[in-house]
Design a protein around this nucleic acid. Structure first.
Lengths: 163, 163
DNA sequence: CTGCAAATGTTATAATGTTGCAAATCTTGC
DNA sequence: GCAAGATTTGCAACATTATAACATTTGCAG
């Protein structure tokens, strides 16, 4: 088995998605939040791609499957999912990606491949700590950290295998 | 004198702006880049605020002073200024701020006060190193780092002095 | 089953950013 | 100087991303 992290190594993505959905249901139930059909479908669509999806990409998929959706439909679902830590917004891409650490309290660090578009979410306490220390040194009280690293993923550094 | 960093402590902002402009001129001259009047004016407008300005804010100021400008005018100037490291784009705000380390090769870390809107740019090699190490551990080759921390600046943590 | 709160539908619009092409300006080699 | 090519700007249209406002429906508690 490869030592490379998901999503770079091959895996059963359908299982990976259904597990994420199951976890999402559990989290919502636990917090008395309603994971309605639309919200669940949006979450599933986002998870089906390791590449971040734009809100209008999600909208297009919804309408293509007969859902009578408008932009607010999607943005509201995304707001909900973000609120419960089920998806993250990637500010540098104006796009959304499934949270791979849902439920855990964390600050995500995103490795975004500019070639294949895949995104890997990391949780690195050493990074978070360094950032918090730097903020402290300026007497700044951090609340939210946006950390997005663009570059080349292992699979795209040498070949043309841009999925 | 306060130990707090600019822009939190009071200072002669006009001087601070004109120094930034002088440095910008030097940097452009050194690299055979043309800091045309429009580009220089955009840079000055951005520097006159410690708060990031949106592209359309810049556009509004230009048109209000008689400049016959359209969105591309501003975006092209901003592209140029970013290319030479004279301004940074803050992805989480869709806005631009003057680079306080122009000329130095660096990765900026931005402390963004959600109350007063001021932004402080830091250069912390310990943070950069931690991020690069985390990326390395995933065999990811970083090219650009977006690091934006939202929270409360020293002046806004206790009082209502939201400038 | 009624009344409130939450969620959704619907229309319109705001905010942000880009493309394409023509005109003007600057620079460079001669 | 000056013609030729490259860079910059003007301009119009358009594309993308996100929100506002308000009516309607749905789910849930009393």
């Amino acid at each position: 088995m490869s030592s490379r992290a998901l999503p770079y190594r091959p895996h059963n993505h359908a299982a990976c998605v259904s597990q994420a959905l199951a976890e999402a249901k559990a989290i919502c139930q636990q917090q008395n939040a309603r994971l309605t059909p639309t919200r669940e479908r949006v979450l599933e669509l986002i998870w089906q791609s390791h590449k971040p999806l734009g809100a209008y990409d999600v909208l297009a998929k919804l309408t293509s499957e007969g859902h009578n959706a408008a932009p607010p439909t999607v943005y509201r679902a995304l707001d909900f999912l973000q609120q419960y830590g089920l998806v993250h917004r990637i500010a540098s891409l104006n796009a959304f990606t499934g949270c791979t650490h849902a439920g855990e309290h964390h600050t995500g660090m995103f490795l975004i491949c500019r070639a294949c578009g895949n995104v890997l979410e990391l949780m690195e306490s050493s990074v978070t700590t360094a950032i918090e220390n730097a903020a402290s040194a300026e007497a700044f009280q951090p609340e939210a950290i946006t950390l997005e690293v663009a570059g080349l993923c292992p699979g795209c550094q040498t070949d043309q295998h841009h999925e």
